[in-house]
């Protein structure tokens, strides 16, 4: 038995939900960024799996979308971590529960 498309999709869904769990339930801003990166990786996995199992288009669209998505995720991580450092300088904490100054 070789792995089918559905197995890859289930693994990607599990990875996405673990990322969602990390983003929703942790209190450190860095953990939330890690969760977001995991969700993006799950989306990339879906792109590649659909590219591999679908009809083969020319040019290879799924691979291209995954490459661009990785580049954008890298930019997002750099800006997000810079924001974490800037917030830490101001408030001396990265705990998102304590960053409530804008709360109404």
């Amino acid at each position: 038995m070789t792995p089918t498309l559905q197995l890859f999709l289930i693994v990607a869904a599990a990875l996405f939900c673990i990322g969602l769990l990390a983003a929703l339930s942790r209190r450190h801003a860095i953990f939330i960024l890690i969760g977001i990166e995991m969700m993006l990786a799950a989306a990339n996995l879906n792109f590649i799996a659909f590219w591999r199992f679908g009809p083969q288009p020319q040019p290879p669209t799924g691979v291209m979308v995954a490459i661009f998505s990785i580049a954008i995720a890298a930019a997002e991580a750099a800006v997000g971590l810079a924001l974490v450092i800037a917030v830490y300088r101001h408030y001396r904490t990265t705990n998102v529960d304590q960053l409530n100054q804008l709360k109404g």
Partner: peptide
């Protein structure tokens, strides 16, 4: 990705 044949990615 390697398993799926997208080595470059």
């Amino acid at each position: 990705f390697f398993l799926l044949g997208a080595e470059f990615v």
